[in-house]
Design a protein around this nucleic acid. Structure first.
Lengths: 246, 246
DNA sequence: AAGACAAAAATTGTTGACAATCTTTATGTC
DNA sequence: GACATAAAGATTGTCAACAATTTTTGTCTT
């Protein structure tokens, strides 16, 4: 049997299905508000409804899907309030991460972060957007990993995933949620052992990422009230789930 | 129909069951390592296995129960490593809570915290241990509520719950996980708007609570290897789930 | 008596069918 | 033609029975 359980005789397990759906959401291939029908997912993954249900429930606890009773599962559409709260929480945690790395024993493993930023840059240059998005997030989670605190890592993993989902909703098309240049600067400060500078850079970085989200109205929203409603001058263009930048 | 869905014709929903099991764990009526058999829970709550399974899965994501494949559900037994990580994470978050309350608009609602500490003291004096344990945790979660950040609250709620479970495992019998005297001091500093003092008190408070956990070996452990094993001079006494102190 | 092996019981995991609910389509009325 | 109503279809929620696994119990051999 293979470790990466592709359907041997029985299909993949619930956890694997959840991971695949999660990846699809984070790579912006499943737009916020999209309906996740059980029967369709059953066909896709070649399993019965049991594992699908389990996977959706797990994604719901991660706040990546909304589970509406008797109506089904939808890719979550975080509110602006939630965007702010997620990034405020990230600032709290990631500042602590930076400080702990500088003060503790995480400095020796910083090389792996450097190679990761290298891959991030490469993904950007080769226009490999899925890898780029993924690596942008992994910079933050790998940094958290250097603290050796698994509880902290779990928490930040969830927040980074939500941030990536948020970028699918709010961010202007084709723009980076995290620029690797910011990441390089943070790494340099950490390498120099300059805790204060690293913390300042991280704080500014997260602040700028959050602000980028607020530049544009939500797109691909689930209900059209948000698009045509009383909020503001969002034109019909905003409703298009996909479009060429021009 | 009543709001608090007691079994009308159909039993309570999965969420309600999870809440009841959670309460039982946090009130130390279900010891760490205890087996949670589906059939038994079905009888207790008067429902089929579906809702039970759902509730156990939810509690598993909260790290309050361990779900072992083909073996069933057990009340979680956090390791010493996990204890340290949970409290480190709490220090990070709760220091930020204190700072935000002092800097922000949370100061006006501090009165509700005062009355809560009053109830906490009363529960202690009347020897109402379940209420005492609950209110000890609620001081921390209510404080977090003053920040207005729901994401932060969810995270801290989980950490406080895990702390309460931890106290069931590691803490010396009948001793407070949180002394309300500490809570009163923290509230006084917040009332005075002294952010630095409040942060220092909160940090010391959490540190002392964590240290209390490490004073005693784990009790009520799931497997007897930990009790009679090579770890140290844990006598038979340590295995007793309950006993009178004197 | 201690250990290994095998049968039996109990428990968890899975499946297919049925019931309840929501959504869509069709029909009738104003 | 617009709106309200009603039937039809599709989707989710629930259940009881079956399969797979683990745990316990009993038996036999050394």
């Amino acid at each position: 049997m293979s470790d990466t359980d592709s359907a041997a005789a029985n299909g993949p397990k619930a956890e694997t299905i959840a991971e695949r759906i999660r990846a699809a959401i984070l790579e912006h291939r499943l737009a916020p508000g999209a309906k996740l029908t059980e029967a369709q997912l059953c066909e896709v993954f070649g399993v019965k409804r049991g594992p699908i249900r389990q996977a959706l429930a797990q994604l719901a606890t991660d706040h990546l899907v909304d589970l509406e009773p008797n109506r089904g599962a939808f890719v979550a559409s975080p509110s602006l309030q939630e965007v702010h709260e997620v990034f405020e929480m990230r600032r709290i945690i990631e500042l602590a991460v930076v400080e702990k790395i500088c003060g503790g024993h995480g400095l020796r493993r910083l090389k792996s972060i450097g190679s990761m930023i290298g891959r991030e840059r490469k993904a950007f240059e080769t226009r490999d957007f899925p890898a780029w998005i993924r690596l942008s997030g992994e910079f933050h989670t790998e940094l958290a990993g250097l603290t050796g605190n698994a509880v902290l890592c779990d928490c930040l993993n969830g927040l980074v995933a939500r941030s990536t989902l948020i970028s699918a909703l709010y961010e202007s098309l084709g723009r980076s949620p995290c620029s690797f240049e910011d990441h390089e600067a943070i790494l340099a400060a950490l390498d120099a052992g300059d805790a204060k500078e690293a913390a300042a850079l991280m704080s500014r970085h997260l602040q700028s990422v959050e602000l980028k989200m607020l530049e544009r109205p939500a797109r691909g929203a689930a209900d059209l009230h948000e698009v045509f409603g009383a909020l503001g001058g969002a034109s019909k263009e905003a409703a298009r789930p996909k479009s060429a930048p021009g």
